[in-house]
């Protein structure tokens, strides 16, 4: 699964206790409904890095900009092996859709660097392919079966645009999805016993699910 970077920022803010109001409510709702969001928040809260981030935002951040970044990188590098399961999430740089940002996400220069470094390492923790780093949104190693492999939220701006690559081990690979103003999910599904019995080389498939606008059709 992959969450947009902006959503990850909000979730990190939630984990750090920095979100308030609607942003907090939205983030909590996402955590309740999205497995990856829950995993991310749990990981950040359980991690010593999360504690450190929370402490850091209370201090005078500007005095320790360089040290913060180095320290976070070191701590996250040490923690990365357990932070995200088996390369499930790989995200790449993405052009932000809008200007909305959780008000407490950036509490100062130091905190911003902390968050940025955290995101970078969160992203890198599951990525082994440097050639995907320029993909617009995300590259995803798909969970085994039966769960949404990619959940692309409804856009706040004009279009939902994403590139997502499922695990490239044959079968079906989703390279790009663009559905203006609609939420898109990609489900990886097994083809089941029929395919297995037929010795199908790639006994799984994909459903690209595009939410219909209310009131149409």
């Amino acid at each position: 699964m992959t969450l947009p970077r902006e959503t990850v920022l909000d979730l990190m803010g939630l984990a750090d206790g920095m979100l308030e109001g609607d942003a907090k409510a939205k983030a909590e709702q996402l955590v309740a409904s999205n497995e990856e969001a829950r995993l991310l928040v749990d990981t950040l809260r359980a991690s010593p890095v999360g504690d450190w981030v929370r402490e850091s935002t209370d201090r005078q951040a500007s005095a320790a900009v360089a040290g913060i970044a180095d320290s976070v990188m070191a701590r996250l590098a040490a923690d990365a092996s357990g932070a995200v399961e088996g390369g499930v999430v790989r995200m790449a740089p993405w052009v932000r859709r809008g200007s909305r940002r959780g008000p407490a996400v950036v509490a100062g220069v130091g905190a911003a660097l902390v968050l940025a470094a955290s995101i970078a390492l969160y992203v890198r923790s599951g990525s082994q392919r440097s050639d995907e780093e320029l993909a617009p949104v995300a590259s995803v190693a798909v969970p085994p079966v039966g769960v949404p492999s990619v959940a692309l939220p409804a856009p706040s701006a004009s279009a939902s645009q994403a590139e997502a690559k499922t695990a490239a081990a044959g079968g079906v690979e989703v390279n790009a999805v663009e559905a203006p103003s609609r939420a898109v999910s990609v489900f990886r599904i097994p083809m089941g016993a029929a395919a297995a019995a037929a010795n199908a080389p790639h006994p799984s498939s994909v459903v690209i699910w595009v939410e219909e606008d209310t009131g149409t059709k």
Binding site: E173, V174, P180
Partner: peptide, 23 residues
């Protein structure tokens, strides 16, 4: 407005995939 503006998929021979969601 397009329901699905762009979908790019690479699939093996004989491997089905689905597009769902249209009411």
């Amino acid at each position: 407005q397009a329901f699905l503006k762009l979908l790019e998929v690479t699939a093996s021979e004989g491997q089905p995939f689905f597009v769902g969601g249209q009411t």
